[in-house]
Design a protein around this nucleic acid. Structure first.
Length: 441
RNA sequence: GGGUCCGUAGCUCAACAGGCAGAGCACCCGGCUGUUAACCGGGGGGUUGCAGGUUCGAGUCCUGCCGGGCCCGCCA
């Protein structure tokens, strides 16, 4: 008999197969009993009919409790009444191992679902639930889409170091790590400076990996450990990478709609909001965005924004509400952006940068820029920021030996997955979230 | 760093103005031949986060401590 995964059951209609998994739920109406079995690839209704089964098998039902590991055999049937469209008419059942205690997470009643925050102490079990299962499968699809996107455009994956001696963005906080005679190094906040070196060597590169920020940010959009994808392209201008960012986001959303529709439905995601994500995205400047905020303020909305400062998350939401797709905001004031961004030749008080704000209040998912490629100008900026010049000597070499225009951006995986899946908090979209107050489990 | 809310059964929550600590789910027992996070009947389950105070009497009021949630700033 063939052992199959639930996601492949459609290929075995009429055949007797074996499924190995865990008991997700059970119900009985006497002589007909139902098991919901999950095996990681899906959820399956299993039917036990008293007259068709030996009593010692039929009665095993009474022993079953949540999350027992079980092995079921039966005949696959197409069945409208079954969730998922297929069910298994049981012929044999084995309890591989019993749950030793009451399962700590209620799974049956929607009104009994604890606050998301409280569930994190059970994260190792919580990921077995339908919604978390769906979110993690969407995350996988997003990540896979990203690799396929860059692969098809012949970008070379370039893995920057995790241990770094200096900060990319001097203002944010770093996690120090003891490092032999060196004393202290830091966990990376961004691979960008290394990616710029990679772009000069390999043309089009991207990195995909974890980054760390020791910010005590307690919001639904922050983690201390999060994943980023960062492309960097030689000879690319700001407009070039804005096109790239737009294509990437559209592709990610398309792929999720194509391959993870069932999961979106389990999450009650409004799919029409995702279907609206098509090219072109609106492109506005910082000054345009500031005007929008001013208009909204005149309409009586409570907006606390001063021209010249960065947008807060409330302001981002107000701006994004005007559009049904991500909005790209360019040319922020130079003084609120890091040293490596190139000033706008038409207005040197601004830099050639872009933030992409996701719809529905999910906030900034991309930050990118055209990089300063002039040697003298870059030194000047490093000194202006009071950064340790010696640490940047290798970075300056990139401008010394055949400097070219180049641009790149970073896309936050968790914020993107949270937006696409409709999750309320980025902690839900990574298997084991790290926040200032939680590193367990 | 700032603001705000909450700790009662394994989980979610009640308990009016201080007066016998309760319900749903989970768990155990019984019933039901197509259930749809089924349903019906019964049962076991508590140091009310910890320490102190006020009171005839504290889950409830006061003080301190511990733990947690949500929002903002910073950012992706």
């Amino acid at each position: 008999m063939e052992r199959v995964w639930i996601e492949d059951l459609g290929k075995f209609v009429g055949k007797e197969v074996e499924v190995r998994g865990w008991l997700f739920n059970k119900r009985s109406s006497g002589k007909v009993r139902f098991l919901i079995v999950r095996d990681g690839t899906g959820f399956l209704q299993v039917v036990m009919i008293k007259n068709d089964l030996a009593p010692e098998i039929f009665n095993l039902y009474d022993q079953l409790t949540y999350e027992d590991a079980i092995i079921v055999r039966g005949v696959v049937k197409r069945e409208k009444r079954a969730p998922g469209g297929y069910e298994l008419l049981l012929t044999d059942l084995k309890i591989h191992s019993k749950s030793l205690d009451t399962y700590p997470i209620p799974k049956v009643r929607p009104e009994n679902i604890p606050d998301v925050g409280k569930l994190f102490k059970f994260r190792h079990l919580w990921i077995r639930s339908r919604k978390q299962w769906s979110i993690l499968r969407i995350r996988d699809e997003v990540e896979r889409a990203i690799h396929d996107f860059f692969g098809s455009r012949k970008f070379v994956r370039f893995d920057p170091p995790i241990f770094t001696p200096a900060s990319v963005e001097g203002t944010t906080t770093l996690f120090p790590v003891p490092y032999f005679e060196e004393g202290e190094v830091y966990l990376t906040q961004s691979g960008q400076l290394y990616l710029e070196a990679g772009a000069m060597a390999l043309g089009k590169v991207y990195s995909f990996g974890p980054t760390f920020r020791a910010e005590k940010s307690r919001t639904r959009r922050h983690l201390t450990e999060f994943w980023m994808v960062e492309p960097e392209v030689a000879w690319a201008t700001l407009d070039d990478i804005m096109d790239l960012a737009e294509d990437l986001i559209v592709y990610i959303v398309e792929r999720v709609l194509e391959n993870r529709r069932m999961e979106l439905e389990i999450l009650n995601r409004d799919i029409s909001r995702l279907e609206a994500v098509k090219k072109p995205f609106p492109r506005i400047t910082y000054d345009d965005a500031a005007k929008i905020l001013l208009e909204e303020k005149e309409k009586g909305r409570d907006i606390d924004f001063t021209y010249g400062e960065d947008f807060g998350s409330d302001e981002e939401t107000v701006i994004s509400e005007r559009y049904d797709r991500p909005v790209m905001i360019t040319r922020y004031p130079r003084k609120i952006k890091p040293f490596y961004m190139k000033p706008d030749p038409e207005d040197p008080t601004k830099v050639l940068c872009v933030d992409v704000i996701a719809p529905e209040g999910y906030g900034e998912i991309i930050g990118g820029s055209q990089r300063e490629d002039d040697y003298e100008e870059l030194i000047r900026r490093i000194r202006e920021e009071g950064l340790p010049e010696e640490e940047y000597s290798w970075y300056l070499d990139l401008r010394k030996y055949g400097s070219v225009p180049h641009s790149g951006f970073g896309l936050g995986i968790e914020r993107t997955v949270a937006w696409v899946s409709g999750a309320s908090h980025v902690r839900e979209v990574i298997p084991f979230a790290r926040t200032p107050e939680r590193v367990r489990p």
